[in-house]
């Protein structure tokens, strides 16, 4: 709702929204400049979902959180009669502890699942999701299986998910990220029954723009490098913000980045025309 209001505001002040334009494919950033645009802001968002590379991730009923949420929200699979299908799940295991994991878990619950688990390898204290998201998930009846790590997804004779083999974890010494490193407890294997597994392990930035824009610096994770607080990239007149810069984060941060860059772009163009 809030996002829709922001979009409506943009339209009201005269912003044209061109859909079906995958920049990096149909046009490159350089072609946009050739067409007369004086500055470009890249907000291309989250990219390729990560998987665990454990056996069974190709079984029917394993989704990335991106796919699950795209089907439900963007393609409206929550509506009866929607043309985009989604599994009608009974028992759902969501792997990961971030905001997207909470979103996927709560969506699964609202889609009518009987039981939804968050499976996370560290403890409740270490969940990277915002506190409110976790509280809301608990309120909606999501069961947290923390200090738990999946090792294999198991399937039935039709190749559909029927469970997830996990191990219990305990927390050791802090690692490079400052969080206590999870270590596998010996002989702690057990199986969670589930007909759907949703992997919410984060994403790596979309390569389409980066790979087609010479001179645009990215770090080794593939995030576009910006300088200062206004989204200035290594290319003149090119600004960036949101998940394409920070890696998967929140829509709140992304909208903030867009607003900061908009100011900087305004200034850049004004200075350019007075030169």
């Amino acid at each position: 709702m809030i996002v829709q209001k922001e979009i409506d505001n943009l339209k009201a002040i005269g912003v044209d929204i061109e859909t079906n334009m995958v920049i990096g494919k149909i046009l490159t950033i350089d072609e946009l400049f050739e067409m007369g645009y004086e500055a470009v802001f890249i907000g291309s968002g989250a990219g390729l979902p990560r998987f665990m590379n454990i056996p069974g991730e190709s079984l029917k009923g394993v989704y990335s959180a991106n796919e699950y949420l795209t089907r439900i929200n963007l393609m409206k699979a929550y509506k009866k009669g929607s043309k985009t299908p989604i599994s009608r799940s009974k028992k759902v295991a969501v792997v990961g502890g971030g905001n997207v994991a909470m979103d996927a878990a709560r969506s699964a619950m609202r889609m009518g699942a009987d039981e939804v688990y968050i499976v996370y390898r560290r403890g409740m204290e270490e969940l990277p999701a915002r506190r409110e998201e976790v509280e809301h998930a608990v309120e909606e009846g999501i069961v947290f299986k923390t200090l738990t790590n999946p090792v294999e997804i198991t399937g039935n004779e039709n190749g559909e998910v029927c469970g997830m083999k996990c191990v219990e974890m305990e927390l050791g010494e802090p690692d490079a990220s400052g969080r206590r490193r999870p270590i596998v407890k010996e002989n702690s294997g057990f199986t969670i029954e589930a007909d759907t597994v949703i992997m919410a392990l984060g994403t790596s930035p979309n390569p389409l723009i980066r790979s087609t824009t010479p001179g645009l610096s990215a770090d080794k994770r593939g995030c576009i490098v910006t300088e200062g607080d206004f989204g200035k990239t290594s290319r003149e007149g090119v600004y960036a913000g949101g998940d394409a810069v920070t890696g998967a984060a929140t829509v709140i941060l992304a909208m903030g980045a867009g607003k900061a860059a908009a100011k900087a772009i305004d200034e850049y163009i004004r200075n350019k025309t007075t030169e």
Binding site: A46, L48, P49, S58, Y63, S64, N66, E67, L208
Partner: peptide, 14 residues
């Protein structure tokens, strides 16, 4: 496939 631009991972293959 759904989005077709590397966002959803639905089209994954081994």
């Amino acid at each position: 496939m759904i989005d077709g631009t590397g966002m959803c991972g639905g089209c994954r293959l081994t």
